[in-house]
Design a protein around this nucleic acid. Structure first.
Length: 492
RNA sequence: CGGGGCGUAGCGUAGCCCGGUAUCGCGCCUGGUUUGGGACCAGGAGGUCGUCAGUUCGAAUCUGGCCGCCCCGACCA
């Protein structure tokens, strides 16, 4: 393992994989397609969970937990949904092992323990949840039902990438039921806004809110909204989705309610989710050739303090000063790590904490003790300055805010520069190949055109942006009339 | 499931064509010198060469089966 990370420009995928491993975020498990999230990586996910969970609670949602296993008959009740996920389901068929009579010490699946009905390991929980909602909902007084679940799901993917696509992943899925279509649509849009807000305010990652084309819609939904983010290689990453389910699941699972007027009607549903994929997004949106760059609001460690010392005596003198800083910063609610290991040199520690993306580093050595100063370095710009040690406590909060802001602004500027409006298919292909990034172009609205463009260019319609203005134009592919531009990109 | 490639120490590898008991780097351990940007020197530990069989006096190397993994395609939060 070399000391230097591969560079982003050389091979973005290699850079990503190495970074994930070297920054101690995650690694491939020995289990096919699965991922081990390491403590440091998991602590970032926990920060995301906390922030999101609060936003869900603030919008009136509560948490619950539903089973991992879904009986096949229940799973197939909503046909479109079942069909959409059928190709990537793990299925439990037996419930017991036994000693292999021909191979002592080894186990075989006991053929006598075959399940009468197979259990599907949830690829998503609509089926199991709606079958439960049937029991919970009778009257308009039971509505709206606003529930979120933090869980793992399994999708048997052919090829996997850490965080972006693994056989098992962690996520949150909200499932709500409403008395009216209007209210359900409002919920769908509200949660899309929550996601966009989270991405921008916490992850410092600008996103484009939009609506999926028919082809990209969630199976079983009437409408799928999404947020799309741009990675530093110009590719798009779907960072969250919110679906308006109409009455599809209510009908499939017979979930009816009595209205105020005494009429019986099917309820209206939504579902929405974000996953550990956001970790991949966070990494690819901000990190550089030195490693991870974490926005302060999601950094498990805000500040790391590295003492520069030659002997025990120097370290203890430094420690006295550091203790004061630790105390005041921790009281102010910041997570601070004092790296007083005597097994590593300062240079090594600098590199290591940069790799892990800690936003601010303080270095204190004998020179500083003499001058009453401390060297302060920020991860996002890699700039350093020396300030008075007495100013540290007031300096840090402002600096962290500034870093959060700067990372966002930088990502936004990059994103905006990498969105190109094109008028012809030649231009479209050229931009995708040479400049990369997102392309705003007219599309005739047909699935045929969408598929043809995808086959020729590997670019997909990421979404119809919600802020896309009415504008007469002609489809870049078919030449037919179009009223709106849609967002194309190659995607993860 | 189609097309290509690879399995050698914790990780990354050389050796394989042309058979003689395994190379180098990182990491790890010990001692010393170092310590304001990934230290240096010296010594050391660690290997059923994926697996099973065959050929041979002798197999990491040649032959065959099996297992596993990676890359490209189809699928995808």
């Amino acid at each position: 393992m070399g000391k230097q990370l591969p560079t982003r420009s050389e091979d973005y995928s290699l850079w990503y994989n190495e970074l994930v491993k070297r920054a101690d975020l995650a690694e491939h498990s020995d289990v096919r397609g699965c991922m081990v999230i390491k403590p440091y990586g998991y602590s970032i996910w926990e920060k995301m969970q906390q922030a999101l969970d609060k936003m869900f609670k603030d919008t009136g949602h509560v948490n619950a937990y539903f089973p991992l296993f879904v009986p096949k008959s229940m799973f197939e009740a909503e046909e479109k949904n079942a069909e959409g996920f059928a190709k990537e389901c793990a299925i439990v068929t037996h419930y017991r092992l036994k000693t292999d009579p021909e191979n002592p010490g080894k186990l075989i699946v006991d053929p006598a323990a075959k399940l009468e009905e197979e259990l599907v390991v949830r690829p998503t929980s609509e089926a199991i949840i709606w079958s439960t909602y049937k029991k919970w909902i009778q009257s308009y007084r039971d509505l709206p039902l606003l529930i979120n679940q933090w869980a793992n799901v399994v999708r048997w993917e052919m090829r996997t990438r850490l965080f972006l696509r693994t056989a098992e992943f962690l996520w949150q899925e909200g499932h709500t039921a409403h008395a009216t279509a209007d209210e359900a649509v409002k919920e769908t849009v509200q949660m899309l806004n929550v996601y966009a807000d989270f991405a921008e305010r916490f992850m410092a990652m600008p996103v484009i809110k939009g609506r999926k084309s028919d082809g990209e819609r969630f199976p079983g939904a009437l409408d799928t909204y999404c947020i799309e983010a741009m990675m530093q290689d110009g590719k798009a990453l779907q960072a969250g989705t919110s679906h308006f389910l109409g009455q599809n699941f209510a009908k499939a699972f017979d979930v009816k309610f009595a209205s105020k007027e005494g009429k019986l009607d099917y309820v209206w549903g939504t579902s929405w989710g974000v996953s550990t994929r956001l970790m991949g997004a966070l990494i690819m949106a901000h990190s550089d050739d030195e490693g991870l760059v974490l926005p302060p609001k999601l950094a498990p460690i805000h500040v790391v303090i590295v003492p520069i010392f030659k002997n025990e005596d120097e370290l203890s003198k430094i420690t006295i000063e550091v203790e004061k800083i630790l105390l005041s910063l921790r009281q102010a609610g910041y997570s601070v790590n004092f790296d007083n290991r005597d097994t590593q040199k300062p240079g090594f520690k600098f590199a290591e904490w940069e790799l892990k993306g800690v936003p601010v580093r303080l270095a204190i050595g004998p020179r500083d003790l003499e001058n009453g100063t401390v060297e302060i370095a920020r991860r996002d710009t890699k700039s350093k300055q020396v300030i008075n040690i007495s100013d540290v406590t007031s300096f840090i909060p402002t600096l962290l805010d500034e870093i959060q802001e700067n990372i966002y602004t930088r990502a936004l500027k990059f994103r905006d520069e990498m969105i190109t409006r094109v008028e012809t298919f030649d231009e479209f292909k050229r931009v995708l190949d040479e400049k990369t990034g997102f392309v705003l172009a007219h599309w005739d609205g047909t699935a045929e055109t969408e598929t043809a463009i995808k086959e020729e260019t590997k670019a997909t319609i990421r979404c119809v942006p919600l802020d896309s203005e009415e504008e007469m134009g002609i489809c870049i592919y078919s030449g037919r009339p179009s009223t709106k531009r849609v967002l194309f990109a190659r995607a993860y």
